[in-house]
């Protein structure tokens, strides 16, 4: 085991997969000479060369469209969208093409494609650069949506994504890159589509993922000091959604809080709560609570921005509501 940042974990996954398979290549804005706008691909250009670390024009549709075409020929592109906010410029290729081609042509086209992107607020970047629209992308059958919350998961899931034969939308969180975690040495993978018990507890189930895993863990630690043991389920993959660990935990605690960074309406929490009500209604002892972003475009001002984002105190408050 080594204690490394999530940035290093992602970088190592990419590096190792590129060493392992010459058909894996990276394309995107500033991935090459610059070294990645979040420094994830620093050193790649010099080592792998311009054929496999391809700087693109600022053309999001064509970054994804061309990656789809290359994937159709059997290559394994990792296409990077500098931020998830720019994914909207490529929405047609993500939604109408990547998510559809395998099905629509009767299975004859396969897309071993990874779209890596970065989301999340909290860095005073204003409304257009701070979104957490993960639920939007999780809406479409045909696409798989992965959003790791730890360095270990990030590395193992990204390796699985690169080896997968389906289009994967891989969402990293900008404020997690510096966070350190224990990562196993050497090659390992973590399966896509598996939720996980991140912290055991008996009193309440907190369902969360990505950045909010950190927030929820802090809340659970504070709650533990007051004698409340929260069980945390990390979704890790939003589509396909693995509800088994969530339901198993809920049948034990009978109470749930869902914590997400995106907006509440039509969000991840809405989906999880519905599934619990549908599949474990007899176990419900209190109305399920959702902690999410306030329903406003994120403002620049630091105080206002933090007011809009879910905080540790919000999670603690929600847990107290359901107990």
């Amino acid at each position: 085991m080594a204690r490394i940042t999530m940035r290093e974990a992602i970088s190592r996954a990419l590096w190792e997969e590129m060493e392992r398979d010459p058909d894996v290549f990276i394309m995107g804005e500033e991935v090459g000479v610059w070294g990645g706008s979040y420094a994830v691909t620093k050193g790649f250009y010099d080592h792998f060369g311009e054929k496999r670390v391809r700087d693109t024009p600022i053309s999001e549709s064509t970054i994804i469209g061309a990656a789809i075409g290359a994937a159709l020929t059997g290559l394994r592109p990792v296409a990077e969208l500098m931020t998830i906010n720019f994914a909207f410029s490529a929405m047609d290729h993500i939604v109408n093409q990547a998510a559809k081609l395998h099905y629509m042509f009767g299975g004859q086209m396969t897309l071993p494609l990874v779209i890596r992107t970065v989301g999340g607020g909290g860095r005073q970047l204003g409304a257009t650069h701070s979104q957490t629209p993960d639920a939007v992308f999780a809406h479409f059958p045909g696409l798989k949506v992965v959003a790791p919350g730890t360095a270990e998961d990030a590395k193992g899931l990204l390796k699985s994504a690169i080896r997968s034969n389906d289009p994967i939308f891989f969402i990293e969180h900008a404020t997690l890159y510096q966070v350190r975690g224990e990562v196993p040495d050497g090659d390992y993978t973590i399966p896509i589509g598996k939720s996980k018990v991140h912290r055991e507890g008996k009193d309440v189930t907190i369902v969360t993922y990505s950045k909010m895993l950190e927030t929820s863990t802090k809340a659970a630690e504070q709650l533990a000091a007051t004698g409340i043991e929260a069980e945390i389920i990390d979704l890790r993959t939003l589509r396909p959604l693995d509800m088994e660990p969530v339901l198993a935990s809920f049948r034990k605690t009978n109470r749930a809080v869902i914590v997400e960074e995106g907006w509440r309406s039509f969000g991840v929490g809405s989906e999880i709560a519905s599934r619990i009500y549908e599949e474990a209604f007899d176990y419900v002892d209190a109305p399920i609570q959702r902690v999410a972003q306030k329903e406003v475009p994120l403002p620049y001002n630091r105080t206002l921005e933090q007011l809009a984002l879910p905080q540790v105190e919000d999670v603690i408050q929600a847990v107290k509501e359901v107990l």
Partner: peptide, 16 residues
């Protein structure tokens, strides 16, 4: 929308 995909098909051939 298929024009970027065409570019990618051609990229696949060029790459290999």
């Amino acid at each position: 929308a298929h024009l970027p995909i065409a570019a990618g098909l051609a990229l696949g051939d060029q790459y290999k």
